[in-house]
Nucleic acid binder design. Sequence first.
RNA 1: GGAGAGGUCGCAUAGUGGUCUAGUGCGCCGCACUCGAAAUGCGGUGAGGCGCAAGUCUCCGAGAGUUCGAAUCUCUCCCUCUCCGCCA
Length: 424
Amino acid sequence: MLDRDLIRNHPDLVRNAIARKGLNAPIDEFLKVDVTRRQIQTDLQDKQAEMNRISKSIGMLMGQGKKDEAEAAKAQTKDLKDAISLGEGQQRELEAQLRDIELQFPNLPHDSVPNGKDETENVVVRTWGEMPTYEEQPLAHWDVADKLKLLDLPRGAKISGSGFVLYTGAGARLQRSLFSFMVDHQTTKNGYYEVYPPYLVNRASLIGTGNLPKFEEDLYKVDDDLYLVPTAEVPVTNIYRDEILNGSDLTIKLAAYSGCFRREAGAAGKDTRGVLRIHQFDKVEMVKFTKPEDSYDELESLVRDAESILQTLGLHYRVIELCAGDLGAKGAKCYDVELWSPGVGRYLEISSCSNFEAYQSRRANIRFRRAQGDKPEFVHILNGSGLACPRLFSAILETFQQPDGSILIPEALRPYVGTDRITA
RNA sequence: GGAGAGGUCGCAUAGUGGUCUAGUGCGCCGCACUCGAAAUGCGGUGAGGCGCAAGUCUCCGAGAGUUCGAAUCUCUCCCUCUCCGCCA
């Protein structure tokens, strides 16, 4: 959601910014409904004020025992009452319309975001580490996993369907180690506070983060109007929905492990092998609530926090800045961290770190007060993966495979995995 | 799942149809007193919308209804607590 005043006063600025993303928004519709709504509201309020005056006078007349005068005053209210209930109906309807329109607006890209139409125009910001070299072409993780019995893909599909993965033995242990390690890392090294959220959320939460109403088809829905979380971003961001935070408590930095559930509608045929794109996966998510003036510094450190995991594990990666056309609807600015997968032979996105500015906080109504007595302002909200487990899992299998077929476990993970090497 | 109780301005409470534009206490802010503090006294202290402004409207868990008028009455829903049942 955007600032209403901004759309009213600078519609062209909004239009142009959104065009940079290659998107559009119902700006004219917004302006039209907004004007009518305000006219009707002003008119309605005059009538309500008049009605309040009359009602109050009736109360006083009754108190003084002047029954006849009270009855006379009551008779006056008939027309007013009808007009008010008509106005209230219109007002309610227009406000609902306006809200629906508003929710369709994408966020505006930050000025620093480069132009570009799609992912081909993203910019590589930096790379870390060396691309590892091997005597022979390294195996893809699905082959490594097969040899070491770390995954049972056929049975995963039998249990739930394609895109659902059964981790087995050391594979299961490695997977469990990854998110434990990452949560510990973010809380002890980077200053995040750990939370562990519900996996089922209501519609209001999904509207708050911007997943609804637009992206319903990406989500699993269960009974009672609840949805499975596509990422911990949703429950964690909504922790403070409809709250006013103390400015002195900002920046708030939260880290959460959760399962993630995505229908991946429309992604059929893309990255289907192994664990590259699956319906259920594990992820550690970082969410920050900041003052507006701090959010871009916090975005930089958020990316660094995501990177620090890969550096600790010794995995080669690069950071790219998304161009306007690849930003998506919600983000104002976004960096992706792409992890090198030697077996697949590609860089794969493993983290996406975004500054949403006040886009989500307007939708979720999350504000802060700088000091006692100050007007509440919207916080800026950022989030980033820290990190997604399956692609980290696969990169470890591919990067650290040894000539004898075993996997050397990175130092930092050994206490969690309980061994320095996974063998057949 | 069953029975009961309850959701009021940061917290605690009052309010059961008409000066409630919601009172009081605590907390918080300002001022006074003080060398300073405590205590005390006085004043202030929610959010949102519309309006250039004066101002005005809305919000007492959410929604609908009755009424000239609803925190207060009716209905539906949500949440919390207690007891019972079931259960990881």
